[in-house]
Simulated assay, not measured.
Amino acid sequence: MIADLLDDYPGIDAPVIASRLGEILRCTAIELNAGRDVPIGIRRAVRHLADAVRVEMQPPS
């Protein structure tokens, strides 16, 4: 999961921020996988965050 990769990602200078971003992604994934509702605005924000992190970690060649 991309959230786990953030914990040690050197592209984010502040380890606390990287850890918190990963926590947001993990917690949202847990809620969705358990079938619990996540407000649509939060779901979209988390999806966009995950997409941006993915692009940052694996830029297109």
Rank of each mutant, 00 (worst) to 15 (best):
M1P: 15
A3L: 01
D4E: 14
L5A: 08
L6W: 02
L6H: 03
Y9D: 04
P10R: 05
P10W: 03
G11C: 04
G11N: 05
I12R: 03
A14D: 11
A14G: 08
P15G: 15
P15S: 11
I17D: 01
A18V: 01
S19N: 03
L21Q: 01
L21H: 01
G22C: 00
E23H: 11
E23V: 03
C27F: 08
T28K: 11
A29W: 00
I30N: 08
I30C: 05
E31Y: 05
L32V: 15
G35M: 04
G35F: 04
R36C: 08
R36S: 10
D37L: 12
V38W: 09
V38E: 14
V38C: 13
V38F: 14
I40P: 06
I42F: 09
I42T: 13
R43G: 14
R44H: 10
R44M: 10
R44K: 09
R44Y: 12
A45N: 12
R47F: 09
H48C: 05
L49T: 12
A50L: 12
A50C: 08
D51V: 03
A52N: 04
V53H: 02
V53W: 01
V55K: 03
E56R: 02
P59E: 12
P59R: 11
P59K: 10
P60T: 05
S61L: 14
S61T: 10
S61H: 09
S61E: 11
